[in-house]
Design a protein around this nucleic acid. Structure first.
Length: 899
RNA sequence: GGUUCCUUAGCUCAGUUGGCUAGAGCGCACGAUUCACAUUCGUGAGGUCACAAGUUCGAGCCUUGUAGGAACCACCA
């Protein structure tokens, strides 16, 4: 490949990905996992994106995080395995499909479950592939052969095995409970899938006439005070389902009524007056109607008092026969109007006021969720949650961010039983069959022949339960399924090293993987959890279609390249935090890629020149031969070329690159992605390009240039895989693919020499600053004079090049011009008298600033407690700083006098 | 009501077990310019680390409280 003037991601990315894929570097080492050492393995299973959807920005972040971990581990020589997944996304997909079906003028009710399942399968099959192409575009180095779809055979069979085990363990029960039911989608939801919104509603007061007083034995007093009880409700239409009126047992107002009966308005039914803590004496009249079939709290009250459950609203949202002949068939809201009118007529409506209350909505369509009495399958979660809490408290899983562990424990402590039935065809069929005809046979049996609507067992015909599993029930098996874990032989990849996913599904997914992992395998499913926060728009607002602030990651990839996107999205982001994201950070990533590209182009040009016959080449080659190659690369595995360091800049860059490498290792160990990106960015740009390469315009140490460039490519590769690979393969001296190279090891350098370069930098910065502060264009105008100073003497050429002065000369005992103060070297800028005078103010300011700093330092040393209690080294350091500052101020003062 | 988090430069955010003379990117100001890169180079301005008290030789960091903001869970008859 040829080095063009700027890096064009679009020209390289597709072909590089295709090459990686073709050469099999992503493939799982599953076929040959023989090492006994768990540390040789590194696996991540991808939270499966919706199979027929498109990736959103959150997926982009997920891939950037996970793939950088995987690529880093691969470079570190581990058996890496990044398992891609695709989610059937039960409900989401169903909604999309049903909409398509309706557009064709059909409804779900025209087909059997099996037909619908087959139709959605085809539908998904047609849509599928986009998501996978997008993962490729993001550079995900995952093992495509192992892609797991959540409806794959092995997933289903694993889920069935667990379900059977739970059934046998008595943890599964069929219960008639209130479920969150969406009348539009005709399915039940888990609590977590319901969105509560604050809304303005009405609270109506309705009088219930007392029909009979409580039986108080011989002490019965017929002259009771109350002839009616007023209850408040937001849902008058449910009164037909009332089976009691509750008052607080401590509420003195109603003591005489407890145990009595009231007549339900608009009907002739009598219902009891009961005492229950649920009734809040402070709220409304303190009396509350109890409708166990249509309210979650009332359901519980009903359980406590053995009240009947009368369902008055059907799944279609219309009134049932129990509501009485006048109301049956009316939609609930219509019925409410009529009930209110009728109550008004009979003088029982006593008040109406506006209130704010939160109303449950379907998270997908926004319809009001109707609590609906349904027979469903539930998992008794007590034991599961308890076990999970025990393991969490033993810190078997390390959380990033740490506090999420406590959040999760808090959640598990209050966890309610888990409703796993869903009334949608697109999902894993619940493997249960029932019968009612034969009293000797069990009502329900477990059987996996779910493709049959009815089966015969022991001469009895059983009928299939038509419901499917909640998707979280199957996805809680994800780590088990993807690592191919079995009871007999386990899996070298289980537990996973890390589970990386969104903090928003901590409860829905992470908690359930932990419970399920422990239940099935006895071990936690992963050793660490990294949770990322939401990606917000640039103003910190949640992205949403309705706000129109959604950023499509693919647009950014197209515009700036995949690497730029990855660098940009990792930047400024820390675990668990919802953080804003702006295109600027992607632009900055794009710039880095281009910078590196040009760095490589520059080095390659030097290499090419050296191999031509130009005079420059001869010079370079001679230099190469004269320098003693002290550090043979083969000593250090991972750095393939021998090199030497022959000047301060070279020692310095070796020191800096080594520090950078170690910092990145540390960042990976602690999931500090943003910091890793920042350190590699500033090392490449601010150190390598701005300083080292500038020095190399003079020295041209080709072996070192090669080694250091290779090192940089390897260090950046986890974050920016494409540009680094493109460069690697464009360089004339490298072989193979970067993706499978070895992570670099330390570079050797002379620390004193490296520190000397730091000194030179200080000088250069001061000279530049001073030149800048002297008004006008000063480039190449003045000379720099130096006193007795071997470092400056040795680096005349370099200093001239970096500062842009006319020349660097020895003052030969006759200094003149402007003395430089900050750098601890005797240096003068050879400028005329009047320019020096202009500089006076500048210098005074510097003296004052240094004086202030000196004061703080002195104050510290004056404090006896500091000298006694602070670590020795700090005290020593302070002392040195005081000496330095004092000397500096002295120098500046002398200079000021001299002017 | 419960759990948790946040408040640091104009904006978005780092800041690890307290050692700080508080950093980055973007933005801003000023200057540069053939020969790796204008997706460039150089210089600079900009901060009472929300507020208050405490612990400490020392607090952006620890403790308590106050104010403002966010997320999730529960509840709102």
């Amino acid at each position: 490949m040829k080095f063009t003037k700027s890096y064009e991601p679009g020209e390289f990315e597709p072909q590089i990905y295709a090459q990686w894929e073709k050469t099999g570097v992503f493939q799982s080492p599953k076929s040959a996992p023989t090492s006994a050492d768990q540390n040789d393995y590194y696996s991540i299973v991808m939270p499966p994106p919706n199979a027929n959807g498109n990736l959103h920005i959150g997926h982009g972040l997920t891939i950037a995080l996970e793939d950088s971990l995987i690529r880093y581990s691969r470079l570190r020589g581990k058996n890496t395995w990044y398992v891609p997944g695709a989610d059937h996304a039960g409900f989401e997909t169903w909604v999309v499909y049903e909409r398509a079906l309706e557009k064709e003028g059909h409804t779900r009710f025209e087909y059997s479950r099996d037909e619908l399942y087959a139709r959605v399968w085809d539908f998904v099959e047609k849509q599928r592939g986009n998501m996978e192409l997008q993962l490729r575009a993001l550079g995900a180095s995952c093992a495509w052969n192992d892609l797991t779809f959540t409806l794959d055979e092995n997933v289903i069979s694993r889920v069935y095995r667990t379900f059977e085990q739970m059934w046998n363990d008595g943890m599964i029960y069929r219960g008639e409970k209130l479920v969150n039911f969406c009348p539009a989608h005709q399915t039940a939801f888990a609590d977590i899938e319901v969105e509560h919104q604050d809304e303005t509603g009405h609270l109506w007061d309705i009088a219930y006439k007392v029909s009979s007083a409580p039986d108080q034995g011989t002490e019965y007093n017929p002259n009771i005070e109350h002839t009616e009880i007023i209850v408040s409700t937001t849902r008058p239409e449910t009164l037909f389902g009332d089976t009691a009126v509750a008052v607080n047992p401590n509420d003195e107002r109603y003591q005489d009524l407890i145990g009595g009966f009231v007549k339900l308005p608009l009907t002739n039914r009598e219902i009891p007056i009961i005492a229950d803590e649920h009734a809040d004496p402070e709220y409304g009249t303190g009396a509350v109607k109890i409708t166990p079939a249509h309210d979650f709290d009332d359901f519980e009250v009903g359980e406590r008092h053995n009240l009947p459950r009368i369902q008055v609203i059907g799944e279609d949202g219309k009134m049932l026969a129990a509501a009485g002949a006048e109301y049956v068939g009316l939609p609930a809201l219509e019925c409410r109007k009529k009930v209110l009118e009728d109550l008004e007529k009979s003088g029982l409506l006593r008040g109406e006021k506006e209130i704010q209350h939160s109303v449950a909505h379907c998270y997908k369509c926004g319809a009001v969720i109707e609590p609906m009495l349904k027979k469903q399958w539930f998992i008794d979660v007590k034991k599961l949650a308890k076990t999970a809490i025990e393991h969490l408290e033993k810190n078997e899983i390390k959380f990033y961010p740490r506090n999420k562990k406590d959040v999760l424990i808090n959640y598990l402590e209050g966890l309610k039983d888990w409703n796993i039935s869903r009334q949608i065809p697109w999902g894993i069929a619940i493997p249960m069959f029932h019968q009612t005809e034969n009293p000797d046979a069990p009502e329900w049996i477990f059987d996996t022949r779910v493709n049959l609507a009815q089966i015969e067992v022991g001469g009895v015909t059983y009928y299939r339960d038509e419901d499917t599993f909640d998707t979280w029930f199957s996805s809680s098996h994800w780590p088990i399924v993807c690592t191919d874990w079995t009871k007999e032989r386990g899996s070298p990849y289980y537990p996973l090293n890390v589970m990386e996913t969104g903090a928003d599904i901590l409860f829905a997914w992470v908690s359930r993987m932990i419970m399920m992992g422990l239940y099935v395998t006895g071990e936690v499913p992963f050793k660490e959890v990294y949770l990322h926060g939401l990606v917000l728009d640039e103003h910190g607002q949640k992205m949403s279609k309705s706000k129109g602030n959604v950023i499509n990651p693919m647009d950014l990839v197209t515009k700036y390249g995949s690497d730029a996107f990855r660098l940009g999205i990792l930047r400024g982001r820390s675990a668990g935090m919802n953080q804003a994201f702006s295109e600027n950070s992607v632009i900055s990533g794009r710039n880095l890629c281009n910078k590196l590209w040009n760095v490589a182009r520059f080095i390659q040009n030097m290499v090419d020149e050296a191999h031509s016959d130009s005079p420059v080449a001869v010079e370079i080659l001679e230099g190469e031969m004269n320098s003693e190659i002290v550090n043979l690369g083969q000593v250090e595995a991972g750095n393939s070329l021998p090199y030497s360091t022959d000047n301060t800049g070279e020692d310095w860059i070796c020191r800096e690159l080594t520090a950078c490498k170690e910092k990145i290792e540390d960042c990976f160990a602690n999931y500090r992605f943003s910091e890793a990106v920042e350190i590699i960015y500033s090392t490449i740009w601010d150190k390598y390009a701005d300083w080292f390469l500038e020095t190399q315009k003079i020295y041209k140490n080709l072996p070192l240039l090669k080694v250091t460039l290779e090192m940089i490519l390897k260090m950046l590769h986890p974050f920016a895989p494409f540009v680094t690979e493109a460069i690697w393969q464009s360089l004339s001296w490298t072989d193979g693919q970067l993706i499978t190279q070895k992570w670099p090891s330390r570079l050797k350098y002379d620390p004193i020499s490296a520190a000397n370069f730091e000194s030179l930098i200080t000088i250069v910065v001061e000279v530049r600053g001073t030149l800048q502060s002297l008004s006008g264009t000063n480039n190449g105008k003045y000379s720099l004079l130096y006193g007795e100073d071997s470092l400056v003497d040795d680096n005349q050429m370099l200093l001239a090049k970096l500062t842009g002065v006319k020349s660097v000369l020895s003052a030969e005992g006759q200094p003149r011009g402007l003395r430089l103060a900050l750098a601890n070297h005797e240096l003068y800028l050879d400028v005329p008298e009047e320019v020096i005078k202009a500089h006076r103010e500048n210098l005074t300011e510097k003296i004052l600033a240094a004086g202030r700093e000196l004061d703080t330092l002195n104050a510290r040393m004056m404090n006896p407690n500091y000298v006694d209690k602070a670590p020795q080294q700090l005290v020593r350091q302070t002392r040195e700083q005081i000496e330095e500052k004092t000397a500096l101020i002295e120098r500046m003062k002398r200079e000021l006098e001299a002017i």
